[in-house]
Simulated scan of single mutants.
Amino acid sequence: MRLQGKRAIVTGAASGFGAGIAQRFLVEGAQVVIADINGAAAQSFVADHGGVACTVDVSDKTSVEAMVALANDAMGGVDILVNNAGITHLPTPLEDVSEEEFDRVFAVNCKSVFLTAQALVPQFKTQGGGAVLNVASTAGVSPRPRLNWYNASKGWMITATRTMAVELAPDGIRVNALNPVAGETPLLKSFMGEDTPEIRAKFLSTIPLGRFSTPEDLANAALYLCSDEAGMVTGVCMEVDGGRCI
Rank of each mutant, 00 (worst) to 15 (best):
Q23F: 04
A119P: 01
K125G: 11
Q118R: 14
L187P: 00
D96M: 11
P91E: 10
D57R: 12
A85M: 02
V108Q: 02
E184L: 12
A182E: 12
V32Q: 01
G50P: 00
G235S: 13
W149Y: 11
G51W: 03
S153N: 08
G50I: 00
A117W: 04
I199G: 01
S153E: 09
R144P: 00
G235P: 05
M164Q: 15
F191P: 03
A66T: 11
A152V: 15
G18M: 03
P143R: 14
M232L: 13
N151L: 04
T234D: 02
F114A: 07
S137E: 02
S153H: 06
R2A: 07
S227E: 11
P180Q: 01
T92N: 10
V68D: 01
A69C: 10
Q31S: 14
S190L: 11
V52R: 12
L81Y: 05
A22Q: 04
S142W: 08
V56M: 09
V27D: 06
D96L: 14
V27H: 06
L120F: 05
E229F: 10
E100F: 10
A177W: 04
H89W: 01
A14W: 07
G86K: 02
G193T: 07
E239Y: 01
V58M: 08
D241Q: 11
V236Y: 10
A74M: 10
M157S: 10
L225V: 13
I207W: 00
A13R: 00
M157G: 02
Q43P: 02
Y224D: 13
V33S: 02
F106N: 08
L3T: 12
S15Y: 07
D73L: 13
L147Q: 04
R144A: 07
G243E: 13
R24I: 02
K125Q: 15
F45I: 01
D171A: 15
N72I: 06
L204A: 03
A13H: 04
A221K: 01
Y224V: 13
G210Y: 06
E65L: 12
L90I: 09
G210Q: 06
V10L: 03
V32I: 05
V113D: 02
A14K: 07
L70Q: 12
A41I: 03
L26W: 00
R244H: 12
Q118T: 05
M238P: 01
G77N: 11
G172V: 08
P215G: 06
M157T: 12
T161R: 07
G231A: 15
V181L: 04
K189C: 05
A177I: 04
I87A: 03
M164F: 15
T116L: 09
V121G: 01
P91C: 08
S44E: 14
G155H: 08
I34M: 02
T234A: 05
D103K: 08
V105E: 03
V236H: 12
